[in-house]
Design a binder for these strands. Structure first.
Length: 456
RNA sequence: GGAUAGGUGGCAGAGCGGCUAUGCGUGGGACUGCAGAUCCCAUCUAUUAGGGUUCGAAUCCCUACCUAUCCUCCA
């Protein structure tokens, strides 16, 4: 298996630190606002990755942090005149709920920053005593120039970075590139005690303290959106490696490309900010997963209605084939697939830089094959295709599985009656049955000689 | 100014030196009471531009132009 490592800027053969075991850390969100489809892209992708790795036999500890204390949360709370910690709590609940809806359920543990203050403080203490961080009147800062490999991940050169492009440079810092690891509280802000007085942790050190306490000084894979490469991951790398003296914090870094809307970055000022819940009003979680996984994870993905409609088409197509196969029982037929070789093709695609798109493409081809040969599929063959689809779906999560709202026998009876009505050409009544069942999510289609139905 | 990834048909996107995918869309057909689904056929005669290497380039090299993301808020 190989994939693109941001650190080496090239595809690299993957070798876990411990045989058969993988420690995977992905930066979770700052719980300060509703979550958007950019979050969805990153978390759906890593969900598929974690599930696939488990499917191929690895034991994966997938850890995600939650930034539940931060300047932005405080500012947001001020605007809304609410309590920052309560605000964070309610967005966190929303996050959990939406991830569950999107079937992102591969994360073993969510580590909240506010529940790891001791670990964070201890790490900062070690930074200070090693002379890597210094205290000023408003906080504790990490001195970037003490870490000579700074820039190795992002390719940034300290002397060529434009300082203060977007943020004001704090006057208390020794150098403009230094970043805060502990922020001293201002009146009315949430706080925790520390050797430097009341305050709260800086962003970068949260993650290094959390990964250190669960994974140790070095681990296998660190993932996140590519917008976090600089400065966040560069800073994490600097903190952790300065303390450990090791060559790596994470041996492999995986970054997902940004999701744009009409070729523009999502932002509130442009009013093109699309939330997950807004998308789920019109599309199923499976369709959103499909749209996100039907692209190379590293390239910029341009969100559009066209893309979503096309995803809806294909998800419906695959789902229908799947349900059709489930109904094949006790039939003889010539059509066969070579399950073993198909599995190996799909596995190879995933093992080549997580080519989820390639997997989907092959699935569509198989589905097309099935539709063409639906009359000559034996039940044995149907079973092995179902096995294949189940296997792929276990990490892609793109097949829609509706709840069966009515009993099988009941539907059959209704359809029998409808069949008689159609024979008598009482189409008003038969169409009404079709419309009524549709309200229950039961779709009817009259195909050659018979009637097919399924749930949605 | 620096870093990174790219520029392929109406759109999305493969191709990794020779056979020009695939999906969506669009048009037509089969089937059909209608709807829908499925299948078949077609369509779009695409490789940012200019050089070079080669018998042969979308693919390798050079130059130019363009786009996106990042440069201390970000998934």
């Amino acid at each position: 298996m190989f994939f693109h490592n941001t650190l080496t800027r090239s595809p690299q053969e993957f070798k876990p630190m411990h045989r058969g075991r993988i420690n995977l850390f992905v930066c979770g969100p700052t719980v300060q606002d509703h979550f958007h489809i950019g979050h969805a892209r990153t978390y759906i992708f890593f969900d598929a990755v974690a599930k696939f790795l488990r499917k191929t036999g690895y034991s994966v500890f997938y850890l995600q942090n939650i930034t539940d204390i931060d300047d932005k949360i405080i500012n947001r709370a001020k605007e809304e005149k609410s309590d920052p910690l309560e605000l964070a709590e309610s967005y966190l609940e929303e996050y959990y709920r939406e991830m569950k809806e999107l079937k992102v359920d591969s994360i073993n543990f969510y580590a909240r920053a506010t529940l790891h203050i001791d670990e964070i403080v201890s790490q900062i203490e070690r930074l200070v005593s090693a002379g890597l961080a210094y205290e000023t009147e408003d906080g504790v800062y990490f001195e970037v120039r003490k870490f000579k490999d700074y820039g190795e991940l992002s390719g940034q050169n300290l002397d060529q970075i434009k300082h203060g492009v977007r943020t004001d440079i704090s006057e208390s810092k020794r150098n403009p590139e230094d970043f805060v690891v502990w922020k001293k509280m201002k009146p009315g802000e949430p706080f925790w005690d520390s050797p430097w007085g009341k305050g709260r942790p800086g962003w970068h050190v949260e993650d290094t303290a959390i990964t250190e306490s669960y994974f140790g000084e070095e681990y296998d894979i660190h993932g996140a959106g590519s917008d976090l490469i600089f400065p966040h991951h560069e800073a994490e790398n600097a903190i952790a490696r300065s303390l450990s003296g090791k060559k790596h914090l994470a041996r492999y870094w995986i970054h997902t490309g940004m999701l744009n809307v009409n070729s523009e970055k999502m932002s509130k000022s442009l009013k093109n900010f699309r939330t997950i819940s807004e998308i789920l009003e019109n599309y199923s979680p499976e369709v959103l997963r499909y749209a996100m996984l039907n692209a190379n994870y590293r390239t910029m993905l341009d969100f559009s209605e066209e893309m979503m409609e096309s995803s809806r088409e294909n998800v419906g197509y695959i789902t229908k084939v799947y349900k059709r196969l489930k109904k094949v029982k006790g039939k003889e037929g010539k059509f066969k697939i070579d399950l073993k070789s198909e599995l190996s093709t799909l596995t190879k695609a995933m093992e080549a830089d997580f080519d989820t798109r390639g997997v989907i493409m092959r699935l569509l081809e198989i589905c097309s094959d099935i539709n063409r040969n639906i009359e000559s599929i034996s039940s044995e063959s149907a079973d092995s295709i179902i096995e294949l689809l189940d296997w792929a779906n276990s990490f892609l999560g793109i097949v829609e599985s509706g709840e069966q709202p009515l009993g099988y026998g009941l539907i059959s009876s209704i359809l029998e009656i409808r069949k008689d009505l159609r024979k008598k050409k009482e189409f008003d009544l038969s169409d009404r049955i079709r419309a009524e069942l549709k309200a229950y999510g039961i779709y009817i289609e009259d195909v050659n000689g018979g009637t097919e139905w399924w749930f949605e």
